[in-house]
Design a binder for these strands. Structure first.
Lengths: 145, 145
DNA sequence: GTGATATTGAGAATCACAATCAACATGACC
DNA sequence: GGTCATGTTGATTGTGATTCTCAATATCAC
């Protein structure tokens, strides 16, 4: 994984790198840099933001993390298992929850539509924004938080 | 349209505002601010970028323009006719062409998927990235531009 | 016209992120 | 274990898109 990537590129290990990578994978999914920085610092004193950006870029390059841009202007990363399928996202406009889903039918339709316009799809991005069950239940008359 | 919106909010007319709005609608679709600024200046001397940003935001607020964020880090606006259907986008990674499409089946599937996760969809974003017919034809051995 | 108020423009501010560069850490080799 | 070439770090600066600030100016109602 990262070790071999590091080795094969003549890169080196470092305390910071390890801390960032471990923290990232502990956190699970859709982690914004800012939050990652905070967590990493909790566990390993001061680590520069620059280092976190650099490390996440590395992880992305070696295929262990995927950068995602939702509408909020900051890049989030999610862990990429080698055998994971492509998936899309449901994003709650109430609480910010992010749910992943896969749907082959949608993907197939996308390919068909693209083809009908002469396009060959290389990648796509599908995000559904709405209110999750929890937010709808708890939001009788709250308005939008 | 804009006139009534301006009136109803106690806003005022201005030469710049008119120039920007007219230019925007002349240009058609998916206009990045920078380009709009250039065009507007061709026709009306110097107009500040700030004014263009402000005016487009106004247009968006009164529903006459839709802001779109594709992957390139700048906001584009497209005219929103009142009776226009929602549509999604095909974006050529070669020449940057942007094609609109509508597909009811995809939309229906999206709703269904969302519902199955307890979400009530408010909006969505679907972008397909790939190579358009032209780029594929002309790109025998070019690599990616 | 006059005056209250909205708008403009230039530049500064912001925000996420990338680049710079001197100080420092790592690992291969002895 | 020590040395050295080379990669990494962190503080700071740069960047690009967008927003804010504020004095000067334009607009509209009267």
């Amino acid at each position: 994984m990262l070790g071999s990537f590091i080795a094969s590129r003549g890169l080196k290990h470092s305390r910071q790198r390890d801390a960032i990578v471990e923290t990232f994978f502990e956190m699970g999914g859709h982690v914004p840099i800012e939050e990652l920085v905070a967590r990493v610092r909790q566990r390993d004193g001061h680590i520069s933001v620059a280092t976190v950006y650099r490390t996440m870029k590395l992880l992305a390059e070696c295929g262990l993390a995927l950068p995602r841009q939702f509408g909020d202007g900051q890049t989030r990363y999610e862990p990429a298992s080698v055998d994971a399928h492509h998936h899309d996202h449901l994003i709650c406009t109430g609480c910010g929850a992010i749910v992943e889903f896969e749907n082959e039918d949608i993907e197939a339709l996308q390919l068909r539509v693209a083809r009908s316009h002469g396009f060959e799809v290389e990648s796509h991005k599908l995000e559904l924004y709405g209110r999750c069950a929890g937010c709808r239940a708890g939001a009788g008359a709250e308005g939008s938080p």
